[in-house]
Design a protein around this nucleic acid. Structure first.
Length: 591
DNA sequence: ACGCTCGCATCAGGTGGGAAACGG
DNA sequence: CCGTTTCCCACCTGATGCGAGCGT
């Protein structure tokens, strides 16, 4: 589908350049201690992913999360499979700056102005590309061609992996991604038709290898890799209303290293082992029959989230990643040999969110910063049997578990929407108003609003990940009964009256988990830091050791060596998460 | 009798581990 | 020789089909 647009690219305007410069490593950007906010670029050019360069803080120096192998050189890499969807649009995170917590301020959250040209850390050299029609295309803020806004729904989970450098298994028959890509989209024209697809591009020009407990570059990447790099969402084409109705998940997307795979109709993306990739989401406005309007303006919007970057491998290299996969992927439950301890003993140590760590509880969004969130069911934990829902590749809208403890928040979130409508930008406000019916439906009944006006092409796709749907996160994976029955009523994460108040009162044991994915309080972060050492309980050490016995790699590897760093990083990253709390959803929008 | 719900069994498919095979 | 890839395994999840039970 994507042909090859000139590699040259975009970033021809000063504005573009400025945007590009603002990008920063996900982790760093997420870290309140890291100066620059979490910003993202539009993946530079159609085939370039420009690793963030470090100006204010070198990864090694100031960033506790520096183990993430970002290239400090600002390398530009050109792949052989140029996409015809260049970075078209520059992406900027709308994540609030550190300290941003005012709900009132949140009203401007969607303001593109917020994300543009404000970064003091313009760390990237200006691009001199010829620019593309796409990037140069003026986009209205409402109506046809309006800018879309995209949230990475399961961002917290992605961040967990990203901290250790995400790895994705690729096999001949294809392997699903985990975490998988899941987005919420806003700002589309309700009646216009769009194709939504994911493209995976090389993130850098290097060949990587895991050595000494770290990912290190090892020669140059093979940029002549052939094969499909696109995965079109099975529901494409569809209307903007359809795409915005609920989460857009790519849970069936498979990664393979089999070049012989039928590239056109396959559900698989062909990658090369030990290369680093960056998934990108493309939203292309098309005619009703799904045909792109080649003649007219190219109405393509591209989004990429740095935390979704990963290294393709045929076997896991980093045991931390392996453990994260095992802990979070329900299909890997069989490998949770410390299963019991994970859910009954050291609750705060486990990586998997608890069933009641509902996304909602993790994204108690202050004010209207994430006013859009009420539109997305990610915020709700699905406690209903899901095998009765199977009509969509997307997350099935679930009812929430709000069911109780968090009804208050639900209400408040509705208010967020209201405030958005009052003060929001025209585009967003309009959009939200349009969606009101959905919102109203579920908010009043606590039932899903997933009744689709359009047919679903696939069924029960993501129901494999029941919790995920909204899960949006790790949180997701655990609401199943199998988990719950392991839980004792006294567990710290049992239902809380209110996420915001509840976690403050939780035991120290609960803080790490809570803070990492939820909070917004610096004070709590400190508490977490202080209590962290004690978090390394004997139980954890023991269970971890047991787990490692099953692994190919030794326990003496990076996991243990880096544990202090990891902890610190986790800590700080948690702060970052807290800080933006909202960061629960990364919110990217085109300038 | 009919329709609906629920529980159980079965099956397809997904997971990481580990050993063997492959290849530079 | 060593790193990477492939294959098979046991385990798990979720979908589906079937029948029993119940209410109308």
């Amino acid at each position: 589908m994507l042909g090859g647009e000139g590699e040259s690219s975009t970033f021809s305007s000063p504005k573009d350049t400025a945007d590009e410069r603002r990008k920063s490593p996900a982790v760093e950007g997420d870290d309140p201690t890291c100066g620059s906010r979490y910003t993202e670029h539009g993946m530079g050019t159609d085939r370039y992913y420009i690793p963030p360069t470090v100006t204010k803080q070198s990864p090694e120096a100031g960033n506790p999360c520096s183990f993430i192998p970002y290239s400090p050189t600002g390398t530009v890499y050109t792949t052989s499979s140029a996409s015809r969807y260049p970075t078209s649009l520059h992406l900027g995170s709308v994540l609030p700056p550190a300290g941003f917590s005012s709900s009132a301020a949140g009203r401007s959250h969607f303001s593109p102005a917020y994300q543009l040209g404000q970064s003091p850390g313009c760390i990237y050299p200006p691009y001199t590309g010829s620019g593309s029609a796409i990037s140069a295309m003026p986009l209205p803020t409402a109506g046809p061609g309006m800018r879309a806004q995209v949230y990475l729904c399961n961002r917290p989970l992605w961040l967990k992996f990203h901290r250790h450098q995400t790895e994705m298994i690729i096999t001949k028959q294809g392997r699903r991604m985990f975490p998988f890509l899941s987005f919420n989209i806003a700002g589309l024209n309700l009646t216009a038709h769009y194709n939504v697809f994911v493209e995976v591009v090389l993130a850098d020009p290097n060949h990587w290898r895991f050595q000494g407990g770290k990912w290190v570059t090892c020669g140059k990447a093979d940029n002549n890799m052939q094969g499909n790099k696109m995965y079109i969402h099975p529901e494409s084409p569809n209307t903007g209303a359809h795409w915005m109705r609920q989460e857009i998940s790519f849970g069936k997307l498979k990664l393979t290293n089999n070049k012989g795979t039928n590239t056109s109709s396959s559900q698989m993306i062909v990658l090369q082992s030990l290369h680093k990739y960056q998934p990108r989401l493309h939203i292309v406005e098309v005619s009703e029959d799904g045909v792109e309007d080649i003649g007219g303006d190219v109405k393509t919007q591209t989004f990429s989230f740095p935390e979704t970057q990963f290294i393709a491998v045929t076997a896991y290299q980093n045991t931390d990643i392996t453990q994260l996969k095992i802990d979070h992927n329900p299909f890997a439950k069989g490998f949770r040999d410390n299963y019991d301890s994970m859910y009954t003993a050291t609750e705060h140590d486990r990586l998997t969110p608890s069933p009641t760590d509902s996304p909602r509880s993790q994204q108690i969004v202050p004010g209207a910063r994430y006013a859009m969130q009420p539109l997305f069911q990610d915020q709700f934990v699905n406690n209903l049997p899901q095998n009765r829902f199977h009509n969509s590749e997307r997350a099935v809208p679930q009812t929430n578990s709000l069911i109780s403890p968090q009804t208050d928040d639900l209400a408040s979130q509705r208010w967020f929407v209201a405030s958005m409508q009052q003060a929001g930008s025209a585009g967003v406000a309009a959009n939200k108003l349009e969606l009101t019916p959905y919102e109203g439906e579920y908010s009043s009944t606590l039932l899903p609003y997933g009744i689709k006006s359009l047919s679903m092409q696939t069924s029960h796709a993501l129901s494999y990940y029941p919790d995920c749907p909204f899960t949006t996160m790790s949180a997701g994976w655990g609401s199943r009964a199998t988990y719950q029955r392991k839980v004792t009523p006294s567990l710290p994460w049992s239902p809380r009256p209110s996420p915001t108040t509840g976690f403050l009162e939780d035991s120290d044991k609960d803080k790490p988990q809570m803070e990492e994915e939820l909070s917004g309080s610096v004070g709590l972060v400190s508490a977490w830091t202080e209590t962290q050492p004690s978090a390394l309980t004997l139980e954890k050490a023991e269970s971890y050791s047991v787990a490692c016995k099953r692994r190919r790699l030794s326990l003496s590897g990076p996991s243990t060596e880096n544990s202090p760093t990891d902890i610190k990083c986790e800590d700080l990253t948690s702060a970052a998460t807290n800080n933006s709390m909202a960061s629960y959803y990364s919110f990217y929008t085109n300038p």
